[in-house]
Measured scan of single mutants.
Amino acid sequence: HAATELTPEQAAALKPYDRIVITGRFNAIGDAVSAVSRRADEEGAASFYVVDTSEFGNSGNWRVVADVYKA
Rank of each mutant, 00 (worst) to 15 (best):
A71R: 08
R25K: 13
Y17K: 02
S47T: 06
G60I: 04
V65A: 04
A66T: 01
E5K: 08
G60W: 04
S54T: 14
P8Q: 12
R39C: 11
N27Y: 09
R25H: 12
A40I: 06
D31R: 02
A45N: 03
D67H: 07
R38A: 09
A46Q: 12
R19C: 05
N61E: 15
R25Q: 11
W62R: 03
S54M: 14
D67G: 00
A40T: 04
P8R: 14
V36T: 04
E42I: 10
R38W: 06
E42G: 06
Y49F: 14
I29G: 05
G44V: 01
F26N: 01
V64W: 03
N58Y: 09
S34R: 15
P8Y: 14
Y69A: 03
R25M: 11
D31C: 06
N58G: 13
V65P: 00
S54F: 14
D18C: 14
A12H: 08
A11D: 02
L6K: 01
A71G: 11
H1I: 07
N58P: 12
N58F: 10
K70W: 09
T4Y: 14
D18N: 12
D41K: 15
A32H: 02
V68Y: 07
V64G: 00
A35T: 04
T23I: 15
A2D: 07
V65L: 05
R63K: 10
V64H: 00
T23W: 09
Y17M: 04
T4M: 13
S54A: 12
R39D: 02
R19D: 00
G30K: 13
D52V: 12
D52L: 13
V50S: 00
D41C: 15
E55T: 10
V50C: 05
A45M: 10
T53C: 15
A3F: 05
F56W: 10
D67F: 13
N61C: 15
I22R: 00
G30V: 12
T7K: 07
D67W: 10
G44Y: 04
A12V: 08
S34W: 07
A28P: 04
V51A: 03
A2R: 14
S47E: 04
Y49Q: 03
V36I: 12
A2Q: 13
V36K: 02
S34T: 11
F56E: 13
A28N: 15
F48V: 01
W62V: 08
T23V: 13
K15I: 14
D18M: 15
G24M: 04
L6Q: 02
A35E: 10
N27S: 12
T23Q: 09
A40W: 02
S59H: 09
R63M: 13
D31L: 06
R25D: 05
R63P: 02
R38T: 07
T53Y: 15
A3C: 06
E42R: 10
V64S: 00
W62I: 10
Q10T: 05
Y17N: 04
A46E: 13
A12E: 08
D18F: 10
N58M: 10
V64L: 06
V51E: 01
R38F: 06
S59P: 12
F56C: 11
D31K: 04
A11L: 03
A12P: 03
A40N: 02
A66S: 02
A32M: 14
I20G: 00
R39A: 11
A28T: 15
V51D: 01
A32I: 14
F26C: 05
Y49K: 03
P16G: 02
V50F: 03
S37C: 09
T7N: 08
H1T: 08
T53I: 15
A13K: 14
F26V: 01
E43D: 12
A35P: 02
P8C: 14
T4N: 09
K70F: 12
T23S: 07
D52C: 14
A40S: 03
G60N: 06
V36Q: 02
S37R: 15
I20A: 00
V33Y: 10
L14V: 06
G44Q: 05
F48H: 00
V64P: 00
D41V: 15
A32F: 06
F48W: 03
V36F: 00
I22M: 05
V36M: 13
S37D: 02
V33Q: 05
P8S: 13
G60Y: 03
S59T: 13
A2W: 12
A35R: 04
V21D: 01
G44K: 05
G30T: 13
T23E: 13
V21I: 12
I20K: 00
G24A: 06
E43F: 14
E9F: 09
E42L: 12
V68L: 15
V21R: 01
E42A: 13
V21F: 07
E9R: 09
F26S: 02
Y17H: 04
R19Y: 06
E42S: 09
E5A: 10
A45K: 01
L14H: 08
H1C: 14
P8L: 12
A13S: 12
R63S: 08
G57P: 08
Q10M: 10
Y49R: 05
G30E: 15
A45G: 05
R19L: 04
G24Y: 02
D18P: 02
G30P: 06
V36P: 05
A3D: 01
